[in-house]
């Protein structure tokens, strides 16, 4: 108070966690705490973003992420519209640049973009004045998923620093893995990744992550296991021989989970391939926090919408 205003989160957009600091991540997670309280109320609505417009621009199907963002906007009383590839000129070959110009003309305050190509969010952010939230761009980043993972772990463990976090599966194609690697590394966790060599991209060590190809070795003493969804199409691309063998080598089951710490958390960005990457009894067991992740996702996205529409000064009591 009295002195200058301390700005704790000052970005026009959230494109990824690579360029966000640990202090900013912490502040975002702090803001998500009161948001989560709002979700627990019988009347899950505050008037904060009344009159603001949020555009959900989805070039890929995503029931979960889109639903989560929609709910977050609605809880904050923002007006939101959905533009998806099947319903708009996107399907008619309108370029992202043209769509961006249209959105600019609509006067949107926030655009949430899901796109199959890496870098699309950055392209959009450079074209529109609205805040752009990357809801997943190709294999690049999916920062809000990582934020909700961080929130979930912090809520369960109190602190993220010092934890061992293992990410298992198709790292090559996973934007969740990349955002999680940046997020957990910045917050002081030790990050391990594990998958078949054909699904682990080169140069990962330079991010600070440690690479394993053997799941048993990777699991020893970890506090958090994040299992990624394996896509069947990768088999057709010849990246691994088949789901049966994949499950045998990289599926999480009771015996393997016993190698991790006793209180280890099991996470998954969903939707889960039961019996492939996670055995059913683990997915439904006490270690799994997969449903909590979904709830926390709404809280984290509310915090983000609030902060990107101008929230975030430590500026109190001059009201």
């Amino acid at each position: 108070m009295g002195g200058g205003i301390l700005i704790l989160f000052k970005h026009k957009d959230l494109l990824g966690l690579k360029d966000i600091t640990a202090a900013e991540i912490n502040f975002l997670l702090d803001t998500a705490v009161p948001m989560k309280e709002i979700i627990s109320r019988p009347i899950k609505k505050v008037p904060t973003l009344r009159g603001r417009t949020v555009v959900n621009l989805f070039y890929e199907n995503s029931t979960r992420t889109r639903g989560s963002f929609e709910l977050a906007a609605k809880h904050l009383s923002a007006d939101s519209i959905n533009i998806s590839s099947s319903s708009s000129s996107v399907a008619k070959g309108e370029s992202l640049y043209d769509t961006a110009r249209t959105i600019q003309s609509l006067g949107a305050d926030v655009v949430i973009l899901r796109h199959p190509m890496a870098g699309a969010a950055q392209l959009l952010a450079g074209t529109v004045e609205a805040a752009v939230i990357n809801a997943g761009d190709g294999a690049h980043e999916h920062p809000t998923q990582a934020l909700l993972d961080l929130f979930t772990v912090r809520e369960r463990r109190g602190e993220i620093a010092g934890l061992r976090v293992l990410i298992v599966g198709d790292i090559l194609h996973s934007r969740v893995a990349r955002s999680d690697i940046w997020g957990f590394t910045k917050m002081g966790a030790e990050v391990r990744v594990c998958g078949p060599p054909t699904l682990v991209p080169p140069g990962l060590e330079e991010t600070g992550a440690r690479v394993y190809y053997n799941l048993e070795e990777a699991l020893v003493d970890v506090d958090v296991v994040i299992m990624l969804r394996i896509q069947k199409e990768r088999q057709q691309q010849g990246l691994f021989p088949g789901l049966r063998e994949y499950a045998r080598l990289y599926g999480l089951n009771r015996e393997r989970l016993a190698l991790a710490r006793k209180d280890a958390l099991v996470m998954h960005p969903g939707p889960v391939n039961r019996g492939v990457e996670i055995a059913s009894d683990i997915a439904d067991g006490p270690a799994a926090v997969i449903e909590e992740q979904v709830t926390n996702g709404v809280a984290v996205r509310m915090a983000l919408l609030y902060l990107l529409t101008g929230g975030g000064d430590r500026h109190e009591n001059d009201y």
Binding site: K18, A118, G119, D137, G138, A139, H140, E141, R175, R178, P201, P202, G203, L204, E206, T207
Partner: peptide, 9 residues
């Protein structure tokens, strides 16, 4: 290489 990995390209 490293950059294709972090850019997801």
């Amino acid at each position: 290489g490293y950059y294709s990995t972090i850019l997801g390209l």
